[in-house]
Computed example of a mutant assay.
Amino acid sequence: MTRIVETLSEISAQYDALFVDLWGCVHNGVHALPEAVAALQQYRKEGGKVVLVTNSPRPRAGVQKQLVHFGVPDDAWDTIATSGDSARSAMFLGTVGQKVWHIGYPGDDRFFEPLHLIEDPMTIEQVPLDQAEGIVCTGPEDPLADPSVMRPQFLYAKQKGLKLLCANPDIVVDRGDVREWCAGALAKLYTEMGGESLYFGKPHPPIYDLARRRLAALGRGISDDRILAIGDGVLTDIAGAMGEDIDSLFISGGLAASETKTGQQPDPNALTAYLQKEMSSPTYTIGQLR
């Protein structure tokens, strides 16, 4: 059973590094969450390392600019691992072919910028669906539209045997008070229709491999039993931590705030019922990161 804690500092001395989710934990899609920022700043002052592990389809540099926009200061984190970077690596290795049909926002075109970490990367060409060898999904074109609007295109893609590369496994996020669909919702629909979706963010192993490499690049070798994963998604952050055998801190006041009846802290009975329903077992739970 998960242990409810009041603050990160109550447990942080047990860990040398944090793998911290961003959306719903450090910011809400509009602005930084001050208590979360202060907690991470204090953890770093005490010698801990903070790796921001996000299912954003953006490259690391793009997420860093976004953090500045949201008001998350540089001294609250050490390095960043994004689902986008992990997925881009796979794309440039030819995982879904050279000619791809892109589903996403117009601003997601940076996903296709050259990646210099790979030797002899494939030249990727964006084409219409009827010419595509595969699909790259960085998110829905309209994050407020039900994913089912893609059924006609997905039926055609499935019949062609196209693989879908999902750059963000999140199903939904809350931008302030507005809930939006993410790429994971489209990949889930495509899979349910019989298509093949490939995932590179949480809870899947590639992003954790990237996070460990980012952590090692900071100059410290840290074992998994000294890493704590923090996030508000039981199907992504917590499931990923459980799969990697890493301790986890569940932020109940994020995506599951209503189910866990979280105000300052979750209602213990509601939290237990929710975690049992989701078959999730975080090591710790807190209402908000603080």
Rank of each mutant, 00 (worst) to 15 (best):
I230F: 05
C137W: 07
A76S: 15
A76F: 11
R151V: 14
G195N: 09
I246L: 08
S148Y: 08
I207P: 00
G134F: 10
D130V: 04
I286F: 11
E259N: 09
D237T: 10
V100M: 05
D21A: 01
V20H: 01
D237P: 01
E141Q: 10
S252H: 14
I238T: 04
A239C: 03
V149I: 15
D177A: 12
P147R: 13
P169Q: 15
G233K: 14
Q41R: 15
I207M: 04
H69Q: 14
I230P: 01
L235G: 01
L22S: 03
I171Q: 12
G97A: 09
G195F: 06
G94Y: 07
L255F: 12
P282S: 15
A157D: 08
S280D: 12
K163M: 02
G71N: 12
T236V: 06
L215K: 06
N28S: 09
T260I: 03
I227D: 01
S56C: 07
I246D: 04
P152N: 10
S83A: 14
H102Q: 09
S9R: 13
S83Y: 09
L215I: 08
L210E: 15
F200S: 02
K160P: 00
W101P: 00
I103P: 01
P106N: 11
W77C: 00
G240V: 14
R58I: 04
T285N: 05
T2D: 03
Q264T: 15
N55K: 09
K160W: 05
M279P: 00
K65M: 13
A241E: 04
E192A: 11
G176C: 07
V136R: 03
F112D: 03
I118R: 02
G84V: 03
K65G: 00
E192K: 06
Q66C: 00
M150A: 06
K99Y: 08
T236S: 08
R179G: 02
L186N: 11
L249P: 08
M279G: 01
H31E: 15
L218Y: 05
Y199E: 04
V100Q: 12
L235S: 13
G194Q: 05
G134E: 09
T191Y: 03
K158R: 15
A132W: 01
G71Q: 11
Q14T: 08
L165M: 04
R220D: 10
L155C: 02
G104M: 03
G240C: 08
A211M: 06
I124W: 13
Q42N: 10
P143V: 07
F111Q: 07
Q126T: 10
T138D: 09
T262W: 13
A32P: 02
A270Q: 11
L289Y: 12
N28E: 03
H69V: 03
A157F: 06
V72A: 06
I286L: 07
T82H: 02
Q64C: 00
C137I: 04
A216L: 09
L210S: 02
